[in-house]
Computed example of a mutant assay.
Amino acid sequence: MSATATSDTGANRKEALKGLHSDVFSANMHPFWATTKDVEHDEVAQLMSPQKAVPWVWKYSDIGPLLERAAELITMADSDRRSLVLVNPGLAPRRASVTTMYTAYRFNGVDEIMPPHKHSASACRFGLLGGGNFTSVEGENVVFGPGDMILTPNDAWHNFGSIGNEGALNLSVLDFPLVETLHALEFHHHYTEMENGKEVEKKEQSARYPVDYSKLVYGQGGMMPRFVDHHRAGGFASPQVVYRWEAMETLLDAHKDHDGDPHDGIIIDYVNPRTGGPVFETINYYIQMLRPGEKTAPKRETANLLLAPFKGKGHSIVDGERFDWEEFDTLAVPGGCWVEHVNPSQTEPVILFGATDSPTQKKLHLYKSWGRNQAGDLLRLA
């Protein structure tokens, strides 16, 4: 290769550049240079404008009827899943609600139990309707209702459905898009247990823990039994797989008159009781309460957020655009967006269930956040 480059001007150079770019693309490469901003190949500008998630609200008024129709048409004989994944219009057709996470809604008819499976993506399940939501995680059988959160960690065998002669609705938030991007996605459906010295395939997990084990071992907070194994499903996630709404509601009520944070209102994180950190290494979940009439100050963070109103209704201003929401909707707030939340009710609080990929960003030293005060001054928050 010659170390001397020659240049040309005018039409000859334009044609030469066109030919160069054509040859680069046909060789499965991409030119990383900028010529001038009025030409087709300003590659720096293109580098800074890839496919991106956009702020969006999915309405439960759309989700609910679609799930009802699916319940009539899709049986467990057809598929062991009946879920709707929320796809961000800015990322379609990729299955992602924001770049690193997706939310899926699942409805189970009366006494439907799917077979066990496991995957390398981490997930939660948050109860919305019905007291008979069912999940078994590594042999801990859990019946849960509205507001209860269940973890299904990376590589944990689990199955789910409904019991008690009623249908049940829940939503899940997974780091599936992140794991898929890292080419680390795995699924396993062949569940077996040892019986009489032989490996036997099973359609349901045998119970290996007492009822309400998570509450019994981890439910007090600040105290942890030393005589039990706290390393389930590889030991990389919270060993507590059930977080009951009753405990969260009590804590919210105890702090309803607290000053809170001007940019967040009242936020309570779900934590790993062993570490005090996030429940997963990649994503975490939280509850956010907006008191009656509360409006949060503008905040911007690099983390991607998914928010599901659990109680109440209101609106958010995301990068200057208003998004109205009500119970069981989902709001996507992509990283880098300015956001404010508003509870218009003067009598009732708003409760939001939230998910964030900040644990991943913090481990990579990429997380930052900013806010504005009442005067509009820019503040560095983290």
Rank of each mutant, 00 (worst) to 15 (best):
L352N: 08
S316E: 04
E294D: 01
T75V: 05
M114K: 07
Y102M: 08
P278D: 13
I351L: 14
F323P: 00
G234M: 13
H41K: 03
I163L: 14
V98H: 08
A34G: 14
S61L: 02
M248E: 01
M29V: 03
D212A: 12
A34K: 05
N196E: 15
G371D: 03
A92H: 06
G336M: 07
V200T: 07
A332R: 01
A71T: 06
N284T: 15
N108A: 15
V24M: 12
G336D: 07
T6H: 14
N28C: 09
A184P: 00
P31A: 06
S83D: 08
Y213H: 15
N196A: 14
G19Y: 05
V143Y: 06
H230D: 05
F280L: 13
V179D: 04
Y102D: 07
V110Q: 12
Y60L: 03
G276Y: 11
E68K: 13
G109N: 13
R106Q: 15
F160C: 10
P334A: 05
T103M: 13
W338E: 08
P292D: 05
L364I: 02
V179H: 04
D62K: 12
F310W: 10
M101D: 07
D148K: 04
E166V: 01
P89C: 07
G64I: 00
N165W: 07
V279Y: 06
V87I: 15
R95S: 10
F328V: 01
P334I: 03
K362G: 00
H158C: 05
G90C: 02
E201F: 04
T181D: 14
L17I: 14
A53Q: 00
D8V: 03
A233G: 04
L331G: 02
T296M: 09
M289T: 10
G312Q: 02
F310P: 00
Q374Y: 06
D8W: 10
L17E: 12
D259S: 11
A53T: 03
D357W: 06
S26P: 00
R106F: 09
E348C: 01
G197L: 09
P89S: 06
G265T: 08
P210T: 12
G131P: 04
V318W: 09
F310S: 09
Q240N: 06
K59H: 15
N12F: 07
M223F: 13
R82L: 14
V228L: 03
M114I: 10
P146R: 06
F323R: 01
L128A: 11
F227K: 04
V44R: 02
F126Q: 10
G277R: 10
H188F: 02
G131F: 02
T347C: 00
G221K: 12
T6M: 12
M1T: 11
L366F: 09
L352Y: 03
V279H: 09
H365L: 14
S358L: 08
T192Q: 09
N12Q: 12
H30D: 05
A355F: 08
S214P: 01
D229S: 11
P273H: 05
L252T: 08
V143C: 08
A308V: 15
P89E: 08
S162K: 02
K295T: 15
E195K: 15
T296G: 08
T4Q: 12
T302L: 14
D257C: 02
L182G: 06
P177K: 09
